[in-house]
């Protein structure tokens, strides 16, 4: 009796464990099926390097270069803002802040991660967008820049929590050793702590980037949704994610347009896969040392 119960539970756990793998494979397979059907009709190169996204005109043009550039521009902008702020916050929390401040700050940062993206988008729309418009004297504040700012807010918690873990796991003896040699606190942080924590920090940045590239709602509300090649960060852009979300409802199931959106999803999937994979490489390197 006990033995068979054991076997049942073991099987159950095995099935649950397998399920997540099955789901990933299914999603990937589905994306592939629809995406490849589209590539067969339209051509991969034309799809990725095409400059015009006119999915409903005659003849239709499915060039996603503007969408890729839109995503990249917003993501890079967000990283430029989020990475320095995130790392410095992590340093402050783990190395400099007194204990009381540290606990409060840590839970606040974690709370920040829990804010739904639609709320961030909404807040950004009524605050950051008009601000950007007025400060830079633009015709519209719905730009890649505004999107980058709001996305930075979403990436910061990820970057802070993971880099903070990495910095905290630097052996105390490294710091003590450097200080005993007469290095100042800042010299110790810069040359020893940051250096030893670097793999973890890079992984944190990668995961932050992953979050930024995959984000949909906030960018859809803030970036202006103009599918053309941006000339500067102060242009309205449209990201790949926003395109899928906005257009899926109007497509004919099984049609060219429908499939093209899956193809975008496939491209997106590959990009995030690469980013996550890089992050894993760095995290793995840290563990093996």
């Amino acid at each position: 009796m006990r033995k068979s119960l054991d076997a049942v539970i073991e099987t159950l756990i095995f099935i649950c464990g397998m399920l997540s793998i099955v789901f990933v494979v299914l999603i990937f397979g589905f994306l592939f099926k629809e995406g490849f059907a589209f590539f067969k009709d339209f051509g991969v190169l034309k799809f990725i390097t095409g400059q015009f996204w006119y999915p409903s005109s005659e003849p239709a043009s499915f060039g996603i270069l503007p969408l890729i550039l839109g995503s990249v521009l917003v993501a890079v902008g967000a990283c430029l803002i989020a990475v320095p702020i995130g790392i410095m916050t992590a340093l402050f929390i783990s190395e400099i802040a007194p204990k009381g401040v540290r606990d409060v700050l840590k839970s606040l940062v974690e709370l920040m991660a829990a804010i739904p993206s639609i709320v961030i988008g909404f807040v950004g729309m009524v605050t950051v967008v008009p601000l950007v418009k007025n400060i830079f004297n633009l015709s519209t504040g719905l730009t890649a820049f505004a999107g980058a700012i709001m996305l930075a807010f979403m990436a910061i918690p990820t970057i802070v929590t993971i880099s903070e873990d990495a910095i905290r796991s630097v052996p105390w003896q490294y710091k003590e050793g450097a200080l005993a040699l007469g290095a100042t606190k800042w010299q110790t942080i810069r040359r020893i702590v940051l250096k030893a924590a670097m793999p973890g920090i890079i992984a944190a940045i990668m995961l932050g980037i992953g979050r930024v590239i995959g984000e949909t709602m906030a960018v859809m509300m803030i970036t202006g949704n103009a599918a053309h090649i941006p000339r500067s960060i102060f242009d309205p852009v449209r990201t790949m994610t926003a395109t899928i979300a906005a257009e899926m409802g109007e497509t004919v199931r099984g049609g060219m347009h429908y499939r093209s959106l899956f193809a975008i999803g496939l491209v997106l999937f590959i990009i995030t896969f690469i980013v996550n994979f890089t992050a894993d490489l760095f995290l793995g390197k840290k563990k093996n040392r």
Partner: peptide, 16 residues
């Protein structure tokens, strides 16, 4: 600390 150096129980070379 420049004038008074210290050697610890655990030898901890810096990670370089």
């Amino acid at each position: 600390r420049k004038r008074v150096g210290m050697l610890f129980a655990m030898p901890i070379p810096l990670p370089m």
